[in-house]
């Protein structure tokens, strides 16, 4: 536990002194905020237009669940932004340690690979929280100005989904970073894997065969859907948690085998 905390602290320190962290945060807030604004204003415009049309026909406008639509679209956009930014967060994790030789310090210290990997993973999760937390402000605005007020639980489920999706992607990023000494290579390869995970859905055929079902099941976005609707389904929880476990397990295997390859 002590080793884990020591690694976590050191990693957070390393993350937050690097300019990359601030660039990632700034880009995330700017793009996220911009899209929130776009989604909100276009949905509001659409609702107003629809209201007019129904009025012209003499019928009362149908009720629209505005907060639900806004949040759902926003979570959709959020996942896409994470896809682009997460490779930047994990690229240095192991690659940089190897490049500057500090892996030699860690590998000859009495710490286990598990402590090391969990420490690093916890650090990038904290960073993810730091990214996601300020976007709650958007939700707060929505909450303050919607009439009648909406339940917050579905929104929190959406955030849980974004956190789990992010965690799964971070575990892939850590694995890729453990394979190379070069940060840029790590980032590009991670990004490539993310794109495949994103579009894997499309490669599945229409008919329901075992292969197609499996491919669909592997799509990280399919499992994210329900969260954005505010639905908490244990099936998806299990998917993300086992995905994370697999990513971290592969990282551990990669570190072990590196010992023999060097």
């Amino acid at each position: 536990m002590r080793n884990f905390l020591a690694i976590l602290k050191k990693e957070l320190q390393a993350l937050f002194v690097s300019p990359i962290a601030y660039v990632v945060l700034a880009v995330f807030f700017a793009v996220g905020g911009y899209f929130f604004y776009i989604i909100m204003s276009s949905l509001v415009n659409q609702a107003i237009e629809m209201g007019f049309r129904y009025q012209q026909m003499g019928a009362p406008p149908p009720p629209i669940d505005m907060p639900f639509l806004v949040m759902r679209n926003f979570f959709g956009i959020l996942s896409t932004i994470l896809l682009f930014l997460i490779p930047m967060i994990t690229m240095a994790a192991f690659a940089e340690e190897k490049r500057r030789g500090t892996m030699e310090l860690l590998a000859t210290s009495p710490i286990t690979n598990t402590q090391l990997i969990l420490g690093k993973f916890a650090a990038v999760l904290v960073f993810l929280l730091v990214m996601l937390a300020p976007t709650l402000l958007n939700t707060l605005l929505l909450y303050l100005y919607s009439e009648p007020s909406f339940p917050l639980a579905p929104v929190l489920v959406g955030y849980l989904g974004a956190f789990l999706l992010g965690g799964a992607l971070l575990s892939v990023g850590l694995f890729v970073s453990s394979l190379t000494e070069n940060q840029i290579v790590a980032a590009v390869v991670t990004f490539g894997i993310f794109i495949v995970l994103w579009v894997i859905d499309a490669t599945a055929g229409m008919e329901s065969s075992l292969t197609n079902e499996t491919i669909k099941y592997l799509s990280v976005l399919n499992h994210y859907e329900d969260f954005t609707k505010g639905v908490l389904d244990t099936q998806h929880l299990v998917f993300y948690l086992s995905f994370i476990f697999l990513g971290l397990f592969l990282t551990s295997t990669s570190l072990d085998s590196a010992k023999w390859r060097q």
């Binding site: 390393a14 002194v17 690097s18 500057r100 030789g101 500090t102 892996m103 030699e104 310090l105």
Partner: peptide, 9 residues
Amino acid sequence: PENPPLYSE
């Protein structure tokens, strides 16, 4: 080690 394993930051 030959190159001291330091975290420069």
